[in-house]
């Protein structure tokens, strides 16, 4: 267990969004976080990234506080969180993934540019390097965000709904990127909304509804009773796990 969250509580405007979260996630696996709307899925990864301040709790990675190891952490935010009309091109956005390693006030050099070219190649966007970001389709935008996360070369990458609103081809190729990352020993923690696909895409699942409902390997945890506890309604799992 390498990501270790203890006693995490986050409050927004006096209402608890996450309560007493104790969670351990394994290293080197594809981990999904699922739960109904308002369950605090995005908040959980934002707390882990240090973007929201918890009222209590600790978040450790390999035994040390995560907030002291930010260069080891990658992030794929929701696509809608940025202004795609910003005057810049695909290459420059991916280059931003190298900034934390480059350091404050220093410029990325040849090694970083080479790395960006490789990452663009991995997500199938090499020919779009000089394309204005406003010209990209939704799927291409998501590929660019994946490339930026790859450029971070992080041990641990958080993703907020990485497959939301992308076409089937893009989804397929982004899944391959995730598999490549896993084969390199990287850990992926993704908020995922689609219960139909979560089982085949991820190794590990955490069911969340303001508190942890269940967390563990997919086969042991993705059960109808756990889903019912998380969503409050009956689910028939295709293929019948229970």
């Amino acid at each position: 267990m390498s990501l270790s969250i203890r006693d995490l509580t986050v409050i927004y405007r006096d209402a608890p969004v996450l309560r007493d979260i104790d969670l351990d996630l394994p290293k080197g696996q594809l981990c999904a976080i699922v739960g109904p709307n308002g369950a605090g899925k995005s908040t959980l990864i934002k707390a882990a990234l240090g973007l929201v301040e918890p009222v209590s709790g600790s978040i450790n990675w390999c035994g040390a506080p995560l907030r002291t190891q930010k260069t080891k952490v990658g992030y794929v935010p929701q696509r809608s969180s940025v202004d795609w009309d910003f005057p810049t091109d695909v290459f420059d956005v991916v280059l931003m993934g190298t900034f934390s390693r480059v350091g404050w006030l220093k410029s990325p050099g040849k090694a970083e540019r080479k790395r960006v070219a490789e990452c663009l190649d991995l997500v199938g966007m090499a020919e779009y390097a000089k394309t204005q970001i406003s010209q990209l389709s939704g799927g291409q935008q998501q590929r660019v965000f994946f490339a930026r996360a790859l450029a971070q070369n992080a041990e641990l990458t958080f993703m907020d709904e990485p497959f939301a609103g992308v076409d089937a081809t893009t989804e397929e190729s982004l899944l391959n990127v995730l598999k490549t990352m896993k084969s390199e020993g990287k850990t992926i923690i993704a908020v995922h909304h689609d219960l139909q696909t979560v089982r085949e895409r991820f190794d590990h699942i955490t069911l969340l509804n303001k508190r942890i409902i269940a967390s563990g390997s997919m086969d042991a945890t993705f059960t109808e009773s756990n889903l019912k506890a998380a969503y409050g309604i009956d689910f028939a799992i295709a293929g019948g796990v229970d």
Binding site: L51, K70, Y75, S81, V82, M96, F99, S100, L105
Partner: peptide, 23 residues
Amino acid sequence: AMVFKEFKLLAFDPIFAESVGLP
């Protein structure tokens, strides 16, 4: 000119900027 790289990141994607530990 000195802070141009930081400015660009902060203007385009402030959440990402914070997540990577940009001051």
